Computed example of a mutant assay.
Amino acid sequence: MATDPSPAPAFALGTFSPVGGVPFPGLVTGEDVLDLRTAPGLRSAPGANPHTRELLERWNEVLPVLRDLAAEGTGARHRLADLRVHAPVQPRQILQSGANYRTHVIDLAVAHEPEDGRPAEQVRAEVAAMMDRRAAEDQPYVFIGLPSSVTGPYDDVVIPSWCTKPDWELELAAVIGEPAYRVSPEQARAHVAAYTIANDVTARELVFRRDMPEIGTDWLRAKNAPTFTPLGPYLVPAEFVTDPGDLQVTLSLNGRVMQDESTKDMIFDVTHLVSHISQTVELLPGDLVLTGSPAGNGMHWGRLLRAGDVMEGAITGLGTQRNTCVAEEA
């Protein structure tokens, strides 16, 4: 089973609800959750519907208050075990980095078995050279995901009836606080409020448009079905993530470890990705920057997702998510 070997952060932020109740933003400290809707110093404007994105919109003001609340240990608290854990934030935008882990891309290229019959060793060498060139040219590859694909960290992942090759891709996700537009890599770190875990589930058979090879990939159908982005469990403030470039990403399938790789294998780190995206897009509070998936996906193992499978994913210091795959109902 995937486990998180590191100590828990002093506190984290999430979205929770009692059974049958209304979701609320909560502060996680150990096994307790503080309801932040009425917490001193965090009250929203009259009539506002508080949620974690609203807190991220005033993150510089909110963060010191969260520190104090976590230290005090007072207020209306719930037992974490009594609550449903939802996706920790509902983003406006999801920006996803593709081909950002060297070993992952090489393994995928070999697994897709080139139609021209090139031997695996040749494909591996050619793709390795391409990845070296990309790193030298400093040009990340980024595409857009849809917020409607987001689901909770313990919710079911629904495999659509049309999907024949569903695959997992556990990823580190950076969560934006202060808006970022045309920032440098040196400035980018200050715009990341928190980190969380995302599983970028992918319909492998739809990634490449065989009817239009000149156009290339079809990320809309391949990655954006409902529930295809399990997120969370929590938003861990960036101050508790000492080095996002040195975290272990681990995914188990039915108890068997499939992904177990360090973020050291990323070609472009978080600051470069945020900076690169911000040259075109204004990143907004609560937006997600997915940093790509390391090696060990289903295509590499020759074992794709099926109904009944249980995925358990962890990243150092960020907690663990657990999702069961179910077939779409007729």
Rank of each mutant, 00 (worst) to 15 (best):
D167P: 03
D167W: 04
W168C: 00
W168H: 03
E171K: 00
L172A: 04
L172Q: 01
A173W: 02
V175F: 05
V175C: 06
I176D: 05
I176N: 06
G177T: 07
A180Y: 09
Y181E: 13
V183H: 04
V183C: 14
S184V: 01
P185T: 03
P185D: 03
P185Q: 03
E186P: 00
E186G: 13
A188C: 07
R189G: 02
A190D: 14
V192Y: 08
A194S: 11
Y195D: 08
A198R: 00
V201W: 05
T202A: 12
R204H: 02
L206Q: 13
L206I: 00
R209A: 11
R209P: 02
R210Q: 12
R210S: 12
D211F: 06
M212K: 13
P213G: 08
I215V: 14
G216T: 10
T217N: 12
T217V: 12
D218N: 15
R221F: 13
R221Q: 11
K223Y: 11
N224I: 01
N224L: 04
A225T: 02
P226V: 05
T227C: 05
G232K: 06
G232Q: 08
P233G: 06
P233K: 08
P233T: 07
Y234E: 11
L235F: 10
L235T: 10
P237K: 10
A238Y: 07
V241Q: 06
D243N: 15
D243P: 04
P244K: 05
P244F: 04
G245S: 14
D246E: 13
Q248V: 08
Q248A: 11
V249N: 03
V249T: 07
T250Y: 00
L251H: 07
L253G: 05
N254G: 14
R256S: 14
E261H: 14
E261W: 07
E261I: 07
S262N: 09
S262R: 13
T263P: 07
T263G: 07
T263A: 07
K264E: 13
D265Q: 08
D265W: 00
D265E: 13
D265T: 08
M266R: 10
D269W: 05
T271R: 12
T271Y: 07
T271A: 14
H272F: 00
V274S: 12
V274F: 10
H276Y: 15
H276S: 14
H276G: 09
S278N: 08
V281F: 15
E282T: 15
L283C: 07
P285E: 11
D287C: 10
D287I: 10
V289E: 04
V289I: 15
V289W: 06
L290M: 14
L290R: 02
T291K: 01
G292W: 01
G292C: 02
G292I: 02
S293I: 09
P294H: 02
A295P: 01
N297C: 14
G298K: 01
M299P: 00
G302K: 06
G302L: 09
R303K: 13
R303H: 14
L304A: 04
R306Y: 06
G308Q: 12
